[in-house]
């Protein structure tokens, strides 16, 4: 007898703090209970630090976002919908490694000395 499966949308938030002009590397894991990562976007606590900032992202040892991709392309602002901004992907979750290299380029911008970056992973969990 077949059992029906349901895919439930879930969210995982990865947060780190970046200092002005710094390159920050984040290493972590996706949640064990999530099955797949279907997309990602991010938000900065200080959007003035966006111009020139770049990032590179791996999920499950697969490069999702290549080096030197502008953060502005994946940044969600208040006047946009998440579905417009989220970068579509399809990688295994289940405690797989996440690696993010974030390069800030705001030295000559009058922003605060540090700001928070939140990366939102759109995940799916299969429920039997």
């Amino acid at each position: 007898m077949e059992t029906s499966k349901e895919e439930i949308k879930k969210l995982q938030v990865v947060k780190f703090t970046v200092k002005k002009g710094e390159t920050f590397e984040f290493n972590g894991n996706t949640k064990t209970e999530h099955d797949r990562i279907k997309g990602l976007f991010l938000r900065l606590s200080n959007p003035a630090a966006l111009p020139g900032a770049t990032l590179r992202v791996w999920i499950d040892d697969t490069e999702i976002i290549p080096d030197d991709t502008e953060v502005a392309l994946l940044h969600h602002s208040d006047d946009m919908s998440i579905s417009d901004v989220a970068f579509a992907t399809d990688e295994k979750a289940k405690n797989s490694p996440i690696r993010i290299i974030y390069k800030d380029n705001s030295e000559n911008l009058a922003v605060e000395d540090e700001f928070d970056v939140r990366v939102y992973l759109l995940a799916e969990q299969t429920v039997k």
Binding site: P51, E70, A72, L73, L74, S77, M80, D84, V85
Partner: peptide, 11 residues
Amino acid sequence: ANRKIKTLQKE
């Protein structure tokens, strides 16, 4: 140059 880029998909 210096355009405000919003979404990857629309660009």
